[in-house]
């Protein structure tokens, strides 16, 4: 498996380039910010871009809503109409548990 943890190797911006991010780069950084600590330069670059870009500000808000919804989903899903164990499966499991 090719590793590309080094931001340069995976084509991510670094250094002064961080001060002129494109929407594509800033979207990726906003996402990574949910999963790792961004460097100070990355945070600064992102702030500059977000100041100027309404689309990316909206994207950030939507990502946070998405995360909130995902945490809540299992609870909601349990109440939705949906699959249940078939009679066969239920009996098979009951039998396995009695052994």
């Amino acid at each position: 498996m090719k590793t590309n943890d080094n931001p340069r190797e995976r084509g991510a911006p670094s250094g002064l380039r961080l001060l002129s991010l494109t929407c594509a780069e800033s979207a990726r950084l906003q996402s990574e910010g949910l999963d790792r600590h961004l460097t100070r330069m990355e945070r600064m670059g992102l702030r500059v871009h977000l100041l100027l870009c309404a689309g990316c500000r909206r994207y950030g808000r939507q990502l946070r809503l998405l995360r909130h919804a995902l945490r809540r989903f299992p609870r909601e899903d349990a109440h939705l109409p949906g699959g249940s164990l078939s009679e066969e499966a239920r009996e098979r499991i009951q039998k396995a548990l009695r052994q």
């Binding site: 498996m1 590793t3 590309n4 990574e32 999963d35 790792r36 994207y59 939507q62 990502l63």
Partner: peptide, 19 residues
């Protein structure tokens, strides 16, 4: 068994698609 770099790219794309 994946690298963090690949993992973050996957998450990013999944979020774009879901959004």
């Amino acid at each position: 068994g994946i690298s963090p770099g690949n993992f973050w790219v996957m998450l990013h794309r999944a979020r774009l698609a879901l959004r």
